[in-house]
């Protein structure tokens, strides 16, 4: 054991300074949600609609104003097929991954950014928890991708503890219910039981596109459409899976220590 400590110390610090200062967020090269440029969209084409497995892109019904496409980033699994079939460059690949929002509406693309007021959190979370948060995670039928990234939060690079956020085994000690997966018929009741076992005030976060909207697995004979209609989420974080930096930003956003960066379906800063 002393040997491990010695070599560990000799190797130096692996933890990033991010999100403070000029720290590395570790996501170089990673691609995220596609960007939408309605002015390039041609009037006689719906290739992207057919290329979208979870139905995140739809044609707006005729007669309604606004751009031709309805985009819902809460359904997007970032497969980037739409950017490959779009011949006009109306949908382009991007590195946008910081998609945590307080209101589900902010994941739908709108022309006028920031017209809807940001939803107020129920209760003053900052007063209640200051700088610390205890999280109970429930896997409601995920593909294990979200778990892999949640587990990565405690690796030496992200080292979530430094930000005062801890995963806790018991729902009795937790402030936040963090849900992954589309909610299978068998996990619905254990999920609700976990929620009921939490003391108030308590918050809910839907992590991953499956938990936000059902994703590619939602519907069918075994799955619901994520938390939709089951529990009200305070923060939605789509992604397939959301990367560890996106998870950290969303957690800090819940604690009002970081701003919401997506409004009307796009990054605004």
């Amino acid at each position: 054991m002393p040997l491990w400590t010695f070599f560990g110390l000799a190797r130096g610090k692996a933890t990033t300074n991010w999100p403070r200062g000029d720290g590395d967020n570790g996501q170089a090269g990673g691609l995220g949600m596609p960007r939408y440029h309605p002015e390039r969209c041609k009037a006689d084409c719906d290739d992207c609609v057919g290329a979208c497995l979870p139905g995140a892109i739809r044609l707006r019904p005729q007669g309604q104003g606004g751009p031709r496409l309805e985009l819902d980033y809460g359904r997007c699994v970032a497969c980037r097929l739409c950017t490959e079939v779009c011949a006009d460059g109306a949908l382009t690949p991007s590195a946008d991954w910081a998609f945590g929002v307080r209101s589900r509406e902010d994941l739908r693309w709108t022309e006028a950014v920031g017209s809807a007021p940001a939803q107020r959190l129920k209760g003053a979370i900052h007063a209640a928890f200051g700088r610390s948060l205890h999280v109970r995670h429930v896997d409601a039928g995920s593909c294990n991708g979200c778990e892999s990234e949640l587990q990565a939060l405690n690796n030496p690079f992200y080292n979530l503890h430094r930000l005062g956020v801890f995963f806790t085994p018991s729902p009795r000690f937790s402030d936040l219910l963090l849900v992954t997966g589309p909610v299978t018929y068998t996990m619905r009741e254990p999920l609700l039981e976990t929620y009921r076992a939490m003391p108030e005030p308590r918050w809910i976060m839907a992590v991953g596109t499956c938990a936000v909207s059902g994703g590619v697995a939602g519907g069918g004979y075994a799955c619901a459409h994520g938390l939709d209609g089951i529990l009200p989420a305070d923060v939605y974080l789509p992604g397939c899976p959301p990367n560890p930096a996106a998870l950290i930003e969303a957690l800090l956003m819940l604690l009002q220590r970081a701003p919401q960066r997506v409004k009307g379906g796009r990054l605004v800063d």
């Binding site: 039928g141 068998t186 697995a217 799955c223």
Partner: peptide, 9 residues
């Protein structure tokens, strides 16, 4: 518990 019926999807 995590049976999502993927084959049918």
């Amino acid at each position: 518990f995590k049976h999502r019926g993927m084959e049918q999807r």
